[in-house]
């Protein structure tokens, strides 16, 4: 047999130090079939995550149940294909006649699909249900559910609500190991046209990453710091390890 798939013990031990796909063995020049299929499975999950849809129904129910004012929006990207090809359209709000008048709030939470709707369907309320009871006393807020949105659409939503702070919960680009990872981008005094250096980011909220509770802790920190210092972005450092320890 030319197969090298009965892998030497010492070689296998490399796996103890990294999640990278090391010590896989080989069949001739190829990968063992089990590894080929595992890789294809991971890729399939990532591809499937990209075409999932924002659960507008379910998320609306959650808002209603907690009596949070909410509204449903669309970006100017009409479908996934256009969304992928035209990031500019995913940053702009589609204004239609159904829009209700928006009361001014301190904070608007935007929940949008990004590149994995599944990520926010699963994780957005895991964060918000920990966070909202802690900020109820201090801030007014609303939720915007946005279909086919990119990060910067939060600025457009915030202008509509005349909000002082926006937190965009968005599905991150699915990796092979994390098809449903959510990120949260926050901006103080958001304006259309802001770029990334004005934003803070909490990344990697998913079942093998940061928990909903940890995400809420970090988000609460960013809210309090941003309102106290009146800033967001590169000048506001987020030391994840330090905050989660405290």
């Amino acid at each position: 047999m030319s197969k090298d798939i009965s892998i030497a013990n010492k070689w296998q031990q490399l796996k103890n130090h990294t999640k990278a796909r090391v010590a896989l063995g080989n069949v001739g020049t190829g990968l063992p079939l089990s590894e080929v299929l595992a890789l294809k499975h991971a890729h399939a999950m990532a591809k499937d995550a990209i075409v999932t849809k924002l659960d507008v129904e379910g998320l609306s129910q959650k808002c209603k149940a907690q009596a949070i004012p909410y509204q449903i929006f669309n970006s100017r990207a009409s479908d996934r294909l256009e969304y992928l090809k035209r990031p500019d359209l995913g940053r702009q709000l589609l204004f239609n006649t159904n829009l209700k008048k928006t009361e001014k709030v301190d904070i608007v939470f935007v929940i949008t699909d990004g590149l994995s709707a599944k990520a926010v369907n699963t994780n957005a309320f895991k964060v918000l249900s920990h966070l909202l009871p802690k900020i109820n006393e201090s801030y007014t807020y609303a939720i915007a559910l946005v279909q086919q949105g990119r990060v910067a659409i939060g600025d457009a939503v915030a202008e509509l609500y005349r909000a002082d702070f926006v937190a965009v919960c968005i599905g991150e680009r699915p990796g092979l190991s994390s098809p449903e990872s959510m990120g949260i981008y926050t901006t103080y005094h958001p304006k259309i046209g802001f770029t990334d250096e004005r934003r803070n980011c909490i990344s990697n909220i998913h079942s093998n990453g940061l928990s909903g509770k940890q995400g809420a802790q970090l988000l609460q920190y960013l809210i309090e710091k941003s309102f106290a210092l009146k800033i967001s972005g590169v000048s506001l450092k987020l030391e994840v390890g330090e905050i989660l320890k405290s």
């Binding site: 990294t18 999640k19 796909r21 090391v22 020049t29 190829g30 991971a42 680009r173 990796g175 092979l176």
Partner: peptide, 17 residues
């Protein structure tokens, strides 16, 4: 890249194989 899967940059490149 080990098994094509870059676990830091989250993309797939070519592998040792």
């Amino acid at each position: 890249v080990p098994g094509t899967d870059d676990i830091m940059l989250n993309y797939q490149s070519t592998s040792f194989h």
